[in-house]
Amino acid sequence: MGLRLVLVTGRTLEQAAGMHKGKCSEEYRAAVSRGEIAPENLAALSLAEGGAALLRTEHGTAEVRLFSADLPAGLLFLPLGPFANTLVGDETEGTGMPSFKGIPVEVELL
């Protein structure tokens, strides 16, 4: 049983820069697979900075690297991109907009 957090996706400058270099570039891959969590959550996982973890939502899974950041405990931030996309569902509750923020996610060690 992994750690249960809430996933929030969003834009970062690194993600945008990587996007310009092309979405198949190593830079883009590194930028969009960089997850951030609170230091106490990282410690609870006994994970070193940049350690690999598997994220699982009801929609899919993604392998990312996790770093500590100034975030409240319980939150996981992941930049928009192909890794976040596998974790987001395509239900829009009648609005056209999928839930890109506030998705329950489970973090497992690899």
Binding site: M19, H59, L80, P82, N85, G89, D90, T92, G96, M97
Partner: peptide, 29 residues
């Protein structure tokens, strides 16, 4: 809306103008 049309399989061809849905849509869509 695009994501809903794709989820339900209602669109049978698409013309995409100046955007990159393959990179930004939920993977299933």
């Amino acid at each position: 809306t695009a994501v809903d049309l794709l989820r339900r399989g209602d669109a049978d061809a698409a013309l995409i103008l100046a955007s990159d849905p393959a990179a930004h849509f939920p993977s299933r869509a």
